[in-house]
Amino acid sequence: MPIKLGGFGTIFSEAKLAGLNLNISPALDAGYVTLAFGSALALFLYPHAFTGALSSKDANTIKRIHPFYRYTAFLLLFVTLLGVAAVAVLGMPFDGKHGAPASSFAFPYLIEHMFPSWFSSFAFAAVVIGSIVPSSIMALASANLITRNLYLEYINPKASSARQSIVTRIMVVVVILGALLFSFVPAASRQIIFLQTFGGAFVLQTLPAVFLSLYTRKLNKWSVGIGWFVSLVITVIMLIQMNLTVSFYKYFFEVYIGLIGLGINLLVVGLITLVMYLTKHVKEEGTIEEKDFEYSS
Score class of each variant (00 low, 15 high):
L17P: 03
F194G: 07
V268N: 02
G227E: 03
F293V: 10
F293C: 06
L204I: 03
F74L: 15
Y256I: 00
L75Y: 15
Y215R: 12
P116I: 12
Y251Q: 12
I111C: 04
L150H: 13
G6R: 09
F202N: 07
G261L: 05
P134M: 02
I24N: 06
T245G: 12
V268E: 12
N144M: 12
E254Q: 10
G263C: 14
Y154F: 14
A126Y: 03
V33C: 04
L274M: 03
P26Y: 01
P47N: 14
D95T: 03
P186Q: 07
H66L: 15
P116Q: 11
N243F: 11
E112C: 05
V84S: 00
L145V: 11
A143F: 00
P108K: 06
G52C: 12
T51Y: 13
W118N: 11
A123K: 08
G52R: 11
G263V: 06
A139K: 00
Y154T: 09
K57E: 12
G178T: 12
L110F: 01
T206G: 05
I166Y: 09
L5V: 09
L212V: 14
Y71K: 15
I257S: 01
M114G: 14
M276F: 13
G9C: 02
K57V: 15
N23A: 12
L214C: 13
I132T: 14
S223Q: 01
F184M: 10
D95V: 11
R70Y: 08
V172Y: 04
A42T: 14
L262P: 00
A15G: 03
A141D: 00
V255N: 04
V246I: 12
F122R: 01
A143T: 01
K250T: 04
T10H: 11
A159F: 09
K158N: 14
A179K: 03
L274A: 08
E153S: 08
V233E: 06
L212K: 10
I137F: 04
A143I: 02
G199S: 04
A162T: 08
K97S: 06
L81D: 03
G130R: 07
Y277Q: 09
V172F: 11
K221M: 10
I264N: 02
V172E: 13
S296T: 15
V89L: 04
I193F: 10
A59N: 03
G130Y: 06
G200S: 07
S247Y: 02
L82C: 06
R169K: 13
V167A: 05
L214G: 07
T147F: 02
I240L: 10
P26N: 05
L145F: 07
N21W: 10
S297G: 08
A188K: 11
